[in-house]
Design a protein around this nucleic acid. Structure first.
Lengths: 260, 260
DNA sequence: AGCAGATGTTGCAATATGTGGCACCTGCAA
DNA sequence: TTGCAGGTGCCACATATTGCAACATCTGCT
């Protein structure tokens, strides 16, 4: 960017530039860099090999991509209906613009949203989920706030009074919330008191809140109603629920958005 | 820039120019400067060596780059001296009894402590590290509190005001703290202001605090002194530091514990 | 003259980069 | 599927650049 004449640079500077492009574009080609720096492909390849050995990128044919730290065996849950969750993720990501403050609830569906957010610039992400925090803090151009509190092992996320407290401190542009079930009469319900309370507050606090619910949760019943869920802007799903459920849900407020 | 005819300048002038270019471009080459000043490469190299010794720049092959008192990448660190870290972990775990409230700092050495704690019963673990929280919440009979806050991507841990706040709320039986270096004169220092402050508070707050430092950190210098580190009960290491360092450290308070 | 500090020169080792050859991928068209 | 063509990975070796240390030279000063 600095000088258009001579891009030749010392090795560490090249490494920076490579990582910078990687962060910006997600991938970078060897030939393209060789031309940019006016150096042979071998030299660039050696740079990349060096960076790859330090775990800073992944080598692929023709260049390099962002290093994917293979997460320790994700739960079986995250495999269930993976395609549906990915579709929900894409639909959710379409609602997020660069620079927004986004809240991501715990859960495998919201994790899919997190994955779909890669590529957005300059996001601020707030979350209670350890896994989501870990994933997002490895993304470039993302600021991550972890809401602290006692960790619920089954969710691997913070719950309880500290997390509830912390929610109030943020001004959230858009929140993506999980949920236990979409009941036959069009209500969103949850498994635990803490979860329901947390989601209720977020639905009321965020400028816009969306519940993300994959089709395995349609028509089920869980014990706790999520208060004020009707303040949410929408419910993002991967397949159309029964028309009756859509009707009664939309009459209360939230729009139903079907991901593709 | 001043005179185009004769760039020859006395050493302090050259030093200024070197630093100026560094600030402007992020790096400078030796050959390039030698030509500019019409001096031999050796002279420029001596200038750079002088500046490097005073911490004003980093020498690299062919020139210099901006001085970065930053830590190496996380993935890289976790591999280094794995055996030593495991030894420290065992020594640390020996200090923990069932039922205690344990604080675990961020860092790869404290992660080794976390691994060594498996088997303890009924622990309560407080941590700022996402990785440690994730690991410990999968253990049976462990309650985990995640201290929230903004996530530092290089640490993958919470830092900043929220984390500092949260520290005050806990009554910690024993804390295991990381650190950037054990300086030659027996002080424990850190890379970042936030890190130093966090560790300082823990050292003062916990009933007993231990720093865990593997031998790669002996005799190094990092910019920030950790205030009140001498309140710590001990420093756990994987190999004996130089006797002079042990002396000056133990005279200040903390005992040196060598893991096996 | 003699000293001290700065700079230059030289030679060799270490490192970085370039080049060419060949095997291997990848996409495409038959 | 097959084969082809172009791009790419990778190795070995050649070349260029740099690091380093020892010693020589210069310059200003007393």
């Amino acid at each position: 960017m600095s000088d258009s004449q001579n891009h030749k640079a010392l090795a560490p500077r090249r490494h920076d530039e490579i990582l910078r492009r990687l962060a910006a574009d997600g991938s970078v080609g060897i030939t393209e860099l060789a031309a940019f720096f006016d150096l042979s492909r071998e030299t660039i390849r050696r740079d990349m090999k060096f960076l790859a050995e330090r775990g800073q990128l992944d080598l692929v044919h023709g260049g390099a991509t962002l290093f994917e730290a293979t997460e320790p065996a994700l739960n079986e849950r995250s495999q269930e209906n993976a395609a549906g969750k990915a579709a929900i993720g894409r639909a959710a990501a379409a609602l997020v613009e660069d620079g927004m403050v986004v809240f991501l609830d715990s859960g495998t569906t919201t994790l899919a949203v997190a994955h779909a957010l890669s590529g957005k610039q300059n996001l601020t992400v707030c979350t209670t989920s350890l896994t989501i925090a870990l994933h997002m803090c490895r993304q470039p151009n993302v600021r991550v706030h972890m809401l602290g509190g006692e960790i619920d092992p089954s969710e691997e996320a913070a719950v309880g009074i500290d997390a509830l407290d912390a929610i109030g401190r943020f001004r959230i542009d858009v929140a993506f919330l999980g949920g236990g079930a979409l009941s036959p009469d069009g209500e969103i319900t949850d498994f635990t008191r803490n979860g329901a309370e947390q989601r209720s507050r977020m639905a009321a606090t965020a400028a816009r809140a969306y519940f993300v619910l994959d089709s395995s949760k349609f028509g089920k019943l869980t014990p706790l109603r999520i208060q004020r869920f009707e303040l949410a802007a929408g419910v993002i799903v991967d397949a159309p629920p029964a028309p009756a459920m859509v009707d009664s849900l939309e009459r209360k407020g939230p729009k139903v958005i079907v991901g593709v």
